[in-house]
């Protein structure tokens, strides 16, 4: 059923919540547990602004199981303004519209549908900025 697996990641998935270092201000995404020996309180939850630029992109035409109804879909590495890079789909974006360095913004969308007896998995995607 994969219920808990998706549930425990909801903050990062739904609202791009990563972590910020209380001392250096460094922002990281995705959030991670403290390293062995690292103080628990060094990293605090931090919601990233959701703006960034396309580092690279591709189009998935041979999808994995669970994504058969989506192709062709755009996937990208996005360099967020705060520094971290994330992997995500681009949405509301034509295949010939995207380019490296294109500014994008985060939206929360359906990532996949686990069927009539399963969850709808929601999470971040990116799209060209709506001004």
């Amino acid at each position: 059923m994969d219920l808990a697996k998706h549930w425990r990641l909801r903050h990062a998935r739904y609202r791009l919540e990563g972590q910020r270092n209380r001392f250096t201000g460094e922002v990281r995404f995705p959030p991670a547990p403290p390293l062995p020996g690292e103080r628990e309180d060094i990293w605090e939850p931090y919601i990233l602004k959701g703006r960034g630029r396309v580092y690279s992109f591709s189009v998935v035409r041979q999808p994995p199981e669970g994504f058969e109804d989506q192709p062709p879909y755009l996937v990208a590495l996005v360099r967020l303004d705060e520094g971290p890079m994330v992997t995500a789909q681009l949405t509301d974006c034509d295949l010939d519209q995207v380019a490296i360095d294109m500014p994008v913004e985060m939206v929360t969308r359906r990532l996949r549908d686990l069927g009539p007896t399963g969850l709808i998995v929601y999470g971040y995607k990116f799209r060209p900025i709506v001004s």
């Binding site: 041979q62 994995p64 669970g66 994504f67 992997t87 789909q89 990532l111 998995v121 999470g123 995607k125």
Partner: peptide, 8 residues
């Protein structure tokens, strides 16, 4: 953080 997005 990767496959969940349909990335292959």
């Amino acid at each position: 953080w990767e496959a969940v997005h349909g990335v292959t």
